[in-house]
Design a binder for these strands. Sequence first.
RNA 1: GCCACCGUAGCUCAGUGGUAGAGCACACCCUUGGUAAGGGUGAGGUCACGGGUUCAAAUCCCGUCGGUGGCUCCA
Length: 694
Amino acid sequence: MPTIQLPDGSTRQFDEPVTPGQVAESIGPGLAASAIGAMVDGTMTDLDVPIAEDASIAIITARKGESESSDDALWLIRHSAAHVMAEAIQRLWPDVQLVYGPPVSGGFYYDMWLPEGNKISSEDFERIEAEMKAIVAEDRPFTRYDMSATEGLSKLESEGNKYKVDNAQRAIDGGSDELSWYATGNPGDNWEDLCRGPHVPSTGRIGAFKVMSIAASHWHGDSSSDQLTRIYGTAFTDRKQLKRHLKQLEEARKRDHRVIGKQLSLFTIDDAVGPGLILWKPAGSIVRQELQDFISLYTRRQGYDQVFTPHIGRLELYRTSGHFPYYQDSQYPPIIERDQMAILAGEGCSCGELSNRLESGDVEGYLLKPMNCPHHIRIYASEPRSYRDLPVRLAEFGTVYRHEQSGELSGMLRVRGFTQDDGHLFCTPEQIGEEVQGCLELVKIIFSTLGMDQYRVRVGLRDPESDKYVGDPDNWKLAETACIEAAEAMGVPFDAEAGEAAFYGPKIDFVVRDAIGRDWQLGTVQVDYNLPERFDLSYIGADNTAHRPVMIHRAPFGSMERFIGFLIEHFAGAFPAWLSPEQVRVLPVSDKSLEYAREVQSLLRAEDLRAGLDAGDERLNAKVRSAAEKKVPYVLVVGPRDSENRTVSVRAHGIERDLGAVPLDDFLASLASEVRGREHGTAISTLFPEAAPA
RNA sequence: GCCACCGUAGCUCAGUGGUAGAGCACACCCUUGGUAAGGGUGAGGUCACGGGUUCAAAUCCCGUCGGUGGCUCCA
């Protein structure tokens, strides 16, 4: 006699056990027709699972033609589409063994093991889709059946797919005493897959799908384990939704910082120099310099001292810090001094031996610095410190080198040489809270100037179960509390995640959402009890004895490379004027106006504005177009009318029309003020209050 | 590092074993044009690099380097 509660709070009584499908029917035929699954007491289930006890039910629906489907609906559709894709692939390649096929954000994938002689490439996608289409057209029901754990396991073992046996074993180890299968159609007659479910009622409910890409993966995510093939796909309720999704992907591709970086001549990566090493071209260097100046200004205001340190340091320094040899794999090999090299050569030292002797300290050398902290620590240690001096705050745009795996390199986002907006704070345990708050404050100022209001922080705490952490537990508690309180004080969303701390201290990561909704992990603040210990750092306390300082590492924007890569994608290359390599471009209508155009340009330059001049003999249309392609924020068209009246005719990037003529002096004042204030588009809103925002 | 795919002019890309192509960009000429490509002419390539097969290789095979998408990793 179940009483079913619906999301609106109303209840319905049933005389006997009822399925969510029947509940939907009792509400109305429209709901029943669009139902594809249900949430029963917060758990997603199939429509045909009988419910005997009181429960609250929400029907998950997907209607053809709806412009947006719920996350739950898409989860069901994609999970089901993964099955259909697997069935299609096994029709085409019967020997392929299935491993694991979950829905993921944006779609789904299926991992599979391809025996010798089976090869799937992107050229096969059309064939796979054609098979999938046929399966969807057959509209066969997803039919679940269960077996006891032992029975199920022996079935799987007889089928000879060790991956599915493993999946089942894991489910059993996780507490299941039953295993379930889903057949697309009749169990026994049609294709089936071991699966926990749930699924949409039938294959026909998968509205629109596409096989997207193919990639490698590893069994259990373990790179020493079996190499699997992963095929990605996506699915939606409706063809229009799929089309919109593909368009969004296209939009993301257009924002790709590698593409825009080329278009706008911001940076280049040159084989002759080396992979993962960025050459900042003049335009990109302006963006970086402006940003660094901005960050430096606020860092100074927060009481940091600017320092400069070299790009290399003795190996012994990094033995002390622990960076060498623990992270040897991701470092460029050490630099060995000439005389040492000669001795080693004389001794006929092998490469393996050399490596051992470098590690043991028997042979000395230098390392390209993988971190700035050891250098900053030595600055701290270079003079006696009193508690009155603390906190000591050292800041440097410090360039470091890490030999990232070749497959990891990606434009400016993952590189081998990069410049961190690095800073190290040496403070007393009591000062941690305030200092961490200062770091968050800086992030807040800079994000709000850049117009990014959607960001959150992640606080990484100890895993209480683990003993991998260094330092005194009381200190940890202090630092963790400080981090959480700082995050709270910042007034942005944050999650505290246990087990996400570094072994040497808790940390805070910044995650920012860009203009098209993607999340980017940028900088971090980390409390460190380890390095002060390793370097035996101290300060003299009020009690006239030596105390150990705590260190805080902070690179709130990560690296200049990654941060600017992110900014390029966020702004799609259309930077606010203060960051723009070319802030304004003057376009003479013809040679006859060239002289006035030059005067306008030189007046702009006198205001410290970066002003270009298009003196080519193209027609105005072509000049307007090319300025737009270079994403110059402001374009001033000047012709005889303008020179006569001392006006400029203004265009702004993103507004595809002539905004009209304004007095030259007014424009100079407005733009200079916008740029000085690091504002975005205020020159336009001042001069042309009616114009649409850029 | 692993797997798949890719590498042709500055850029985007065509070119299935038989004399290297297009558009854009660039240079020059004509055009002096008021808001997203005016017209013409020209220059530009060791087809990533090295080896092999072949009468003949951008094209087929092997290797190296580099890139892309994933996986693994990220102090």
